[in-house]
Design a binder for these strands. Structure first.
Length: 477
DNA sequence: GCATGATCATGC
DNA sequence: GCATGATCATGC
């Protein structure tokens, strides 16, 4: 094809659209605009000598809109129809990033469509607005790089049609059902991304004051959108968009009547009453003196997984946590999370905070063990959990904000004997979480906003709070 | 006895 | 070399 020749595509044919989309792979948004400008210039020059207006670098609107107008040459339509209506293809232009270790991950969740609380309750999945837009997507992935200041200089590296495969679709349908049932129960205001596996109800508010009506409660709810979770999109990127990437073993190996979570609980419940020693024997795991993560490893073995990763857990952002109950029905230790950097935390707002988002987006599989009177650790069962929206938005938010305030006003450090005391939120201050050190030792430090350094800290969930979240039957007797 | 601070062990 | 899960030590 000669330079400047317009490449057409058949707007009724998904494959033709995908083929045409390959013309943007390897180009930046600016280059795509330049090409479009040159094309317009040449056409206009022939007819009138007029010069087309070129891309305004400060244009409003998303990069998706830019691709629609400058590459596919159609005007952005309203929300109710797929972008390529006649082909049933939805266009999504979305960023990915390359991590320090070279791996690639989605930078964002993929927003599909807003949840209309009052109408969605009457929509069957197959006929839903959501599925109309999610069943066939042209995924255009561009590389996000922190150093690049002008977003038009981001480079598009992949463009591919995507349909959720059957095994994912089963889980997505179940996720949809969970979201709809929560709305039907008058709890739209308690929706959280951690409620579900691949399809989430993602927060979508321009301002935190923005609220919407829901059908079965007078309580106003945050606007939310159906979205494929970040963790799911990372998997999609690495395994369906970039080919040849090895995947983790999956838990579901044959079709089952049970939902995913019931299937997992069933598998683990089969070993209830086993001691850790007996489980090690069962799975030929070497029992070491200091078992780091041994119980989590055993959980994977019970699920029939050889390694320490499972495909579904990666896609759904499910984190396995071991809970140890003492024979006095208490949990000895609080639950730790990744360290935070003092200087980064003070730059965040609660709505985009690392810890707040982590808790909202993460679903946990608690594997519960209990010490018997002879100090043997006995498996009691397991439970899926994510933090209730109320606890997140009240208690955790309070602790997070206080932590930020303390850092901004200057951490107060006092020496007491061998220990340094500080004024971060303490366990006694809040029923849900607190701040405590979490480093190699006291000399393992990060810089404070004011230039001093202090022992690395993280947020911890209080052990007595966790205990209250565990089902009674997993604790007693 | 427990909250708070400190440190260890291991895997990636 | 660091992150993470687990546990220990100090001090009230």
């Amino acid at each position: 094809m000669s330079e400047g020749t317009k490449v057409f595509f058949d707007e009724c044919d998904p494959i033709s659209i995908e083929t045409y989309s390959q013309n943007m792979v390897g180009k930046t948004f600016a280059e795509i605009c330049d090409e479009d400008d040159r094309e317009k210039d040449s056409i206009l020059a022939e007819t009138s000598g007029y010069k087309a207006s070129h891309e305004n670098k400060k244009r409003k609107g998303g990069l998706g809109e830019l691709i629609e107008e400058r590459f596919f040459h159609y005007a952005a339509n309203n929300d109710s129809q797929p972008d390529f209506d006649k082909a049933g293809v939805e266009l999504k232009v979305t960023p990915y990033k390359v991590n320090k270790n070279g791996s690639k991950s989605a930078k964002e969740r993929l927003i599909i469509t807003m949840i209309d609380y009052c109408n969605v309750i009457n929509e069957k999945f197959e006929e839903s607005h959501l599925w109309g837009k999610a069943q066939l997507i042209l995924l255009v992935y561009y590389l996000y790089e922190k150093e690049i200041k002008n977003r038009l200089d981001y480079r598009i590296n992949y463009a591919k049609l995507f349909t959720p495969p059957a095994e994912d679709l089963k889980i997505i349908k179940h996720d949809y059902k969970i979201i709809i049932e929560k709305i039907k129960a008058g709890k739209a205001h308690e929706l959280s991304e951690g409620d579900t596996m691949y399809l989430g109800a993602a927060p979508k508010a321009a301002t935190s004051k923005n609220r919407r009506k829901q059908p079965y409660s007078d309580e106003l709810a945050k606007p939310r959108a159906f979205a494929f979770k970040n963790s799911y999109m990372t998997y999609v990127l690495n395994n369906y968009i970039i080919s040849g990437k090895s995947t983790y073993e999956s838990i579901i190996k044959e079709s089952s009547e049970l939902s995913f979570e019931d299937y997992v609980m069933d598998k683990i419940d089969k070993y209830n009453g086993y001691s850790v020693g007996a489980l090690c024997k069962e799975f030929n795991v070497e029992y070491r003196k200091n078992p780091k993560n041994l119980e989590a490893m055993l959980a994977y073995r019970m699920l029939g997984i050889k390694g320490n990763h499972a495909e579904e857990f990666e896609k759904a952002n499910i984190v396995v946590k071991t809970i140890r109950i003492t024979n006095k029905n208490k949990i000895k230790e609080n639950m730790s999370f990744p360290n935070f950097k003092f200087k980064e935390l003070v730059e965040e707002e609660w709505e985009d905070s690392t810890f707040g988002n982590y808790l909202e987006e993460t679903r946990f599989l608690f594997v519960v063990y209990k010490f018997d009177d002879d100090n043997n650790l006995i498996l009691k069962g397991c439970q899926f959990w994510n933090i209730p929206y109320e606890d997140l938005e009240n208690q955790v938010k309070k602790v997070w904000k206080q932590t930020k305030k303390v850092l901004i006003e200057g951490l107060e450090i006092t020496q007491v004997g061998k220990q340094k005391r500080n004024n971060f939120p303490k366990k006694t201050d809040n029923a849900v979480c607190h701040v405590r050190p979490h480093g190699r030792n006291a000399e393992d430090v990060y810089e404070l906003p004011d230039g001093r350094v202090y022992t690395k800290q993280c947020f911890w969930l209080n052990n007595d709070y966790i205990l209250k979240q565990i089902k009674r039957e997993l604790i007693e007797n």
